[in-house]
Write a protein that binds this DNA or RNA. Structure first.
Lengths: 229, 229
DNA sequence: CCAAAAGTGTTCACGGTACACCCATGC
DNA sequence: GCATGGGTGTACCGTGAACACTTTTGG
């Protein structure tokens, strides 16, 4: 059936789509390619998988190399294996997507090193190879998953306001949400713990800061609770 | 970072979980392993990916080899790459899952050739390597996906009764559904075309036979319709 | 006429949605 | 005192869930 066996010239790599939210924009991380083909073009962080390296480990490694990024959430996305997706050599790529907190205590990683940069997701440059397709797949997945798993919190600071949370969902889902209904729904889930604190340094009434209570979430899940926004 | 490069000893394979529904049971296809390790043990159909072979193509090929199965639906599931999942050699497996129509015109493929056999999913033998984990992942995916995509129809004959459809969902979702509510909901979606025919050779009132109208489904999708059961 | 499954409506509870104003704060 | 977003409640509607009997057919 197959003429070439697996090993002859087949390479296995990982590519990672990292998202961050910058209060009003969904951003993604890209870096300039060093090697051929397409050296100098923007592409997703990625690289070959070591023979004794776990897949997710490889994903974390390439992120550490690309801008010192350490995602709060990381999940396997899809495996891209079209025969001619890399012109040089048959390459199968296991893609991951990850979420990072961009806005934490006034942005330490907002200027990543190593030739990497954040782009507004809807205005990013064209990426090399099939990386635009990978990024689009990741975006669809994020959009779907954020609605039924509480992963959105991984994009916010540990303490956040309900308005930040709403803005996050609006950015990801690409539609406006009703403020009262949103707050009612989120608070009714009983997943947020009031931190007792409020925003500082704002020229208006400061908002309450909440934390996502993961223990409570897990407990509710065991009782059949389903997150949904 | 990684010590061994990709090629040294890293193998890429596909494994396929094939489901069928036999009126009252969810079944899955397994075959006896020929090669070491675990020769003779039950395992999922699978095999190495050829250097010039598409991933999905490889999945279809191994199914053709394992019992001449040709799935009506086939989708990539997940990529399993734990370092020691195969004791002989580092192997990364791209898993697919597929759906076949078992009950078509009195079962042509119900006795698959090539050392393969159908097992009731909940009573299957232990599978070699991490194939039980792969099968469980596929089952969860099927259970989730069948609720928001009309893929269940790929498990039924082209023409089917509403009772067959309901039994299908009951088997996959592992819970009973209310007959009137089920029929109301399905028919309200306006996705089924009445074939004008009825069951034959049944010792009771024969039921209407419906077809899934895929054209109509696609049209509705463009208008924002979301399938859901 | 009996067995077996097909087919059919109504009621109720709940959750989603639409919608507008006062409040607290910093400047 | 003004600008800015924070914070709050109610009414309506549509969908999901519960629930039982008559009809049609073959044997």
């Amino acid at each position: 059936m197959s003429t070439r066996p697996t090993d002859e010239g087949l390479a296995l790599s990982v590519e990672v789509v990292v998202f961050g939210v910058d209060d009003s924009d969904l951003k993604l991380l890209a870096r300039r390619r060093e090697g051929e083909p397409f050296a100098g073009r923007w592409a997703l962080p990625g690289g070959l998988v070591g023979g004794d390296e776990a897949l997710e480990g490889a994903a974390r490694r390439v992120l550490a190399e690309a801008g010192g990024v350490s995602p709060a959430y990381l999940e396997q996305l899809y495996t891209f294996g079209a025969i001619d997706r890399d012109p040089r050599r048959r390459t199968v790529s296991v893609a991951y997507y990850g979420l990072v907190r961009l806005a934490d205590p006034r942005a330490p990683a907002s200027a990543p090193e190593g030739g990497a940069a954040w782009f507004v997701a809807s205005a990013a440059p064209r990426l090399a190879l099939d990386h635009d397709e990978i990024a689009a797949t990741a975006r669809r997945r994020l959009q779907a998953k954020v609605r039924y798993e509480p992963i959105g919190f991984e994009l916010l600071p540990r303490k956040f306001t309900l308005s930040q949370l709403q803005a996050l969902y609006e950015v990801i889902l690409e539609r406006a949400l009703d403020k009262r209904n949103f707050r009612k729904k989120i608070l009714a889930m009983d997943l947020l713990a009031d931190s007792g604190k409020v925003e500082a340094d704002v020229a208006r009434r400061p908002a309450r800061l909440y934390r996502f209570d993961e223990r409570r979430y897990r407990r509710l899940c065991k009782q059949g609770f389903n997150f949904e926004v």
